[in-house]
């Protein structure tokens, strides 16, 4: 279970609304490498993890990703406040506005709604951890791309924080992979799935 804490993980205070920025940043909410996919991926994968340390890192990173969903949603909420119909049309935000007004709905930058196809749960510790390592790098690249397109320091600041977290999570998933490999039988490295098969000696 979870308990809500009434605070952001890192402050978000954007002085100037800018719907054009919201239109691209929304990919880190509902896009293929976004925070919603990240939290769903890790919190789902943990059940089939054979090692408690790995289930632990997936639980705690997955929980932090929920805080990142909240931060991205806050950035979108603050960027789209007090918009006029003219600003909505000029910024290209009109294609989102027509269906969702200024509500927060998970879509990718090109408008494709969030899809569970963005996550993988293979039920195998090595397949799943390698997916997670790639996912953190893909999210980091998305943040790098966003930082190339954003020039408002109020927006760049929380985006840089989120980018750094992808790197830390990558490190921790690397530790989890090392732990899992250390527990494998060196004579039969990928010969059995510790999440499923009973080990026979």
């Amino acid at each position: 279970m979870w308990i809500y804490e009434k605070k952001l993980q890192y402050p978000v205070k954007i002085k100037n609304p800018n719907a054009a920025l919201a239109k691209i940043i929304i990919s880190q909410l509902g896009g293929p490498d976004g925070e919603l996919a990240a939290s769903t991926r890790y919190l789902s994968q943990r059940f089939s993890m054979p090692y408690r340390e790995v289930a632990g890192i997936l639980t705690d990173v997955g929980t932090e990703e929920l805080a990142h969903v909240e931060m991205i949603s806050t950035i979108l909420y603050q960027l789209t406040r007090n918009l006029t119909p003219e600003e909505i049309k000029k910024s290209g935000f009109d294609t989102y506005f027509v269906d969702h007004t200024t509500g927060i709905y998970p879509v990718a930058a090109a408008g494709v709604p969030f899809d569970a196809k963005y996550i993988g749960v293979k039920g195998d510790v090595f397949a799943d951890l390698n997916e997670d390592l790639a996912a953190e790098q893909k999210a980091r690249v998305t943040y790098d791309n966003l930082l190339r397109l954003i020039d408002d320091p109020d927006v760049c600041d929380p985006i840089r924080f989120l980018r750094e977290r992808e790197i830390v999570h990558y490190q921790r998933f690397g530790d989890a992979l090392r732990i899992s490999q250390d527990k494998m039988d060196e004579k039969n490295f990928y010969g059995w799935n510790p999440s499923f098969d009973k080990k026979v000696h």
Binding site: Q9, Y10, P11, D60, H169, R172, D175, I179
Partner: peptide
């Protein structure tokens, strides 16, 4: 005060993630 809480919570979170794989 809120910033202070966020700072301490960040340090705790970092320690939690590290300890998960270095218990």
């Amino acid at each position: 005060h809120m910033k202070q809480i966020q700072t301490y919570a960040f340090a705790v979170k970092e320690a939690v993630l590290y300890l998960d794989t270095h218990p």
